[in-house]
């Protein structure tokens, strides 16, 4: 599909700008461009639920990242000059891409997935769960325990954030 390829090329360009930009605020905005491009790609890939969730999550993580970048002085004053390290990493990534290409030849081609248990879900979900949206019926009915685990991970992360950023109860050093 040509649209998907153009979108992924756009995302790659935005990602390179985000990684290589000196200005940290510009880098964060470029990450936002990557995420919104991903949201549009989900729409082209026939996944509207994912597109909506990605849009909301992207905006939230953008706000959080801007909070981290908003510190005035010294945030972007990190010099990055290493020739040997950079070339070694680029060579390693090239080897990784070659092996990834070899293994990509083994999985089914783009556009013809192996639909195993999903076929049964597609045929039966309207009868068995009564939900018109098959994705929702999988999340909240067939694989509800997965969603419970997701909520657990989410609350664990919230507890972690609270433990890291709390001010009360921390001993102050004189």
């Amino acid at each position: 599909m040509l649209q998907i390829q153009i979108l992924i090329v756009f995302m790659i360009i935005a990602a390179v700008i985000a990684v290589e930009s000196v200005d940290l605020l510009g880098a964060v905005v470029s990450v936002g461009a990557v995420g919104l491009g991903l949201s549009i790609a989900f729409l082209f890939l026939q996944a509207p639920d994912l597109a909506i969730v990605q849009l909301v999550v992207e905006i939230l993580s953008l706000i959080i990242l801007i909070r981290a970048v908003g510190i005035k002085n010294g945030a972007s004053a990190v010099r990055e000059r290493r020739f040997i390290g950079t070339s070694a990493v680029v060579i390693c990534l090239g080897i990784f891409l070659i092996f990834a290409y070899k293994s990509l030849l083994e999985i089914p081609r783009f556009g013809s997935p192996i639909i195993g248990v999903a076929g049964r879900y597609l045929m039966q979900s309207l009868k068995e769960t009564g939900a018109a949206n098959v994705v929702t019926s999988i999340i909240l009915d067939y694989r509800a325990l997965d969603t419970l685990g997701e909520a657990t991970v989410l609350f664990t992360a919230v507890i972690g954030v609270l433990a890291v950023v709390r001010k009360i109860g921390r001993k102050s050093k004189e």
Partner: peptide, 9 residues
């Protein structure tokens, strides 16, 4: 639909 459900998580 299964990859979509997993990625939503």
């Amino acid at each position: 639909p299964i990859p979509q459900a997993l990625i939503l998580t």
